[in-house]
């Protein structure tokens, strides 16, 4: 029963959502759209509970780090302190309060943006390593990357004024054609996986048999 009940729920919920996407079905005041909306609301509630579980997981692991004085335990301490402060201020004073805004714009925004900006460094090192004219295919990739990068920066136009036009052509045609091929394949693959889950053929998300 431990496996059958989730499989039945998956099937019933899946069929309701699919039918609701295509058809307007209703009996009296009860419509399929209402049921579907209600199910989707439940997912939000379940997600909220899951967040609680996740917080417990986080606290368990990091309090153990502090208790056992594992290497870098002070990072775990910083995490727990900031988590408690942000939660407390957010719950008691709201996210529009000056104190919350101070922590948010003073700490979270710059730290988050800094991590994102690391991407520029990683792109440079990956490009340096990957774009090498090893064979014909790699050379085509290299030349295309070169032109597209030039076309995306104002300096490209100073070198050759038509670079943005060539870039646009490359992006709109060869690039788009390849992308659509992958999109179609992935969409069909996702649909097939969805069917496998719906009819209970794919149940690895429930753990091993």
């Amino acid at each position: 029963m431990k496996r059958e009940i989730p499989l039945v729920i998956t099937f019933v919920v899946g069929v309701i959502i699919i039918l609701d996407y295509f058809f307007k079905i209703g009996i009296g005041t009860l419509s399929l759209a209402t049921v579907s909306m209600e199910i989707q609301n439940w997912t939000l509630i379940i997600a909220a509970f899951a967040l609680g579980l996740a917080a417990v997981n986080l606290l368990r692991i990091h309090s153990a780090n502090i208790r056992l004085k594992r290497p870098g335990w002070y990072n775990s301490l910083a995490l727990i302190i900031t988590m408690v402060i942000m939660s407390f201020v957010g719950i008691t004073q709201g996210t529009n309060s000056p104190l919350y805004r101070y922590w948010y714009t003073g700490f979270l925004v710059p730290v988050d943006a800094t991590i994102f900006s690391l991407l520029a460094f990683y792109i440079t090192s990956a490009a340096y390593r990957a774009f090498r004219a090893r064979n014909v295919d790699a050379t085509i990739l290299l030349v295309t990357a070169f032109v597209v990068m030039l076309g995306r920066a104002p300096v490209g136009e100073l070198i050759w004024k038509d670079v943005p036009r060539v870039t646009k052509w490359l992006m709109d045609y060869p690039n788009m054609a390849g992308q659509r091929g992958i999109i179609i394949g992935a969409a069909v693959g996702a649909l097939s996986l969805g069917l496998r889950i719906l009819i209970g053929l794919e149940r690895s998300y429930l753990g091993q048999d």
Binding site: A127, R129, G189
Partner: peptide, 20 residues
């Protein structure tokens, strides 16, 4: 493209769904 550039093997789109 990032995975292709930096990883040893990449499962492209639908291949990932087929692995099971």
């Amino acid at each position: 493209q990032f995975f292709v550039a930096a990883c040893d093997y990449t499962l492209l789109g639908e291949e990932m769904f087929a692995v099971g």
